[in-house]
């Protein structure tokens, strides 16, 4: 049983309009203390807009929102003192050094140098930038800048860390380094709110998530429960070549629970992938490539919206 005190973010009917556009459309969710909560959705779903409302820098148009029990409309600065924010676009000071970025930022919370000097060193070590501590931010790679932004967001020892697309635009290796750091944070008890359009990121990092599309919540739950509810256990992926996929899909009718025909491949949702694939080949169908894999959140999204997460 959750005590109310353990709910750190509470949204009911949360809505944001930009003129005629309803960017966030009456969403309900709760984030519990210490969990990693995800907002998964494609570009334009309203993830960043939701994040900015949580970060208490953008006023909601309607609905209820409370962060750590406080209403951001009234207690914006107080709430912001308890948050760490990693925005979608880095906004570091490029002209000063790595370590100075942390110190300067810590000063904005009114923290004294006596606290900030050792804290900055500790965080720089945590995000593995010790060698770059005295470098100008200009000279850092994209992944390093992202890690520095995370370190900066931790300088005030926040109760909630907000990460808007933390690994978008990074190469696979840089993403893994970053995931590893976020795992460590999660283990140490920091509440994480993460937006992403990468289903693997959501699966790896999030305890619970909401799937958003066009400002609405399409589904909510743990990655495993969402997959169980909206997809089969396994997926057979077949590629016959882009011109043949649609035509051959006809002949695959009867396989699995459901078939999705995408421009570049056919997906068969089934609980018995290998057997189905063997029977398909027995029938004389010769896919150029074939693959049996476990269902993912990408499949959940496809099922819910008929579209892929990344176009």
């Amino acid at each position: 049983m959750e005590k109310p005190i353990d709910i750190v973010i509470h949204a009911r009917g949360l809505t944001k309009d930009f003129g005629q556009l309803r960017a966030v459309d009456s969403v309900d969710f709760e984030v519990r203390k210490g969990e990693a909560f995800g907002l998964l959705g494609p570009n334009g779903a309203g993830k960043s807009t939701t994040m900015r409302m949580i970060a208490s820098v953008s006023k909601r148009t309607g609905g209820e929102l409370s962060i750590l029990g406080l209403d951001p409309n009234e207690y914006g600065p107080d709430i912001r003192g308890h948050l760490g924010v990693v925005p979608q676009q880095d906004n570091l000071d490029l002209e000063i050094k790595v370590r100075e970025n942390l110190i300067v930022y810590g000063r904005y919370f009114g923290l004294p140098m006596k606290f900030l000097r050792p804290k900055a060193d500790e965080l720089i070590e945590f995000v593995q930038l010790t060698e770059k501590a005295k470098a100008k931010v200009d000279t850092l790679s994209g992944g390093m800048k992202r890690r520095l932004t995370i370190a900066r967001a931790l300088i005030n020892e926040p109760d909630i860390l907000l990460l808007d697309e933390p690994t978008t635009g990074l190469d696979p290796q840089a993403r893994h380094v970053l995931w590893d750091r976020l795992f460590r944070l999660k283990e140490s008890g920091v509440t994480l709110v993460i937006t992403t359009h990468y289903m693997d990121e959501a699966e790896q990092l999030c305890d619970r998530l909401i799937v958003m599309d066009k400002g609405r919540i399409m589904a909510a739950g743990t990655p495993a429960s969402l997959i169980q509810e909206f997809s089969s256990r396994e997926v057979v992926e077949l590629r016959f070549g882009s011109d043949k996929n649609a035509r051959l899909a006809e002949q695959l009718r009867g396989f699995g629970e459901r078939i999705e025909v995408l421009p570049d491949r056919i997906l068969i949702y089934t609980d018995t992938g290998e057997e189905d694939l063997a029977r398909i080949v027995e029938r004389g169908l010769r896919p150029v490539t074939s693959l049996v894999r476990r269902s993912s959140l990408e499949d959940v999204f496809l099922r819910l919206t008929g579209r892929s997460l990344i176009e």
């Binding site: 009114g110 804290k119 945590f126 140490s188």
Partner: peptide, 26 residues
């Protein structure tokens, strides 16, 4: 940041009742 303890170790000692108090003043 290596251990669990440091996450909520020091900063709160330097904040007043409200975490925005110093930022608003200075």
């Amino acid at each position: 940041m290596s251990g669990q303890a440091s996450v909520h170790a020091g900063a709160s000692a330097y904040f007043g009742q409200r975490r925005s108090a110093k930022s608003i003043a200075f």
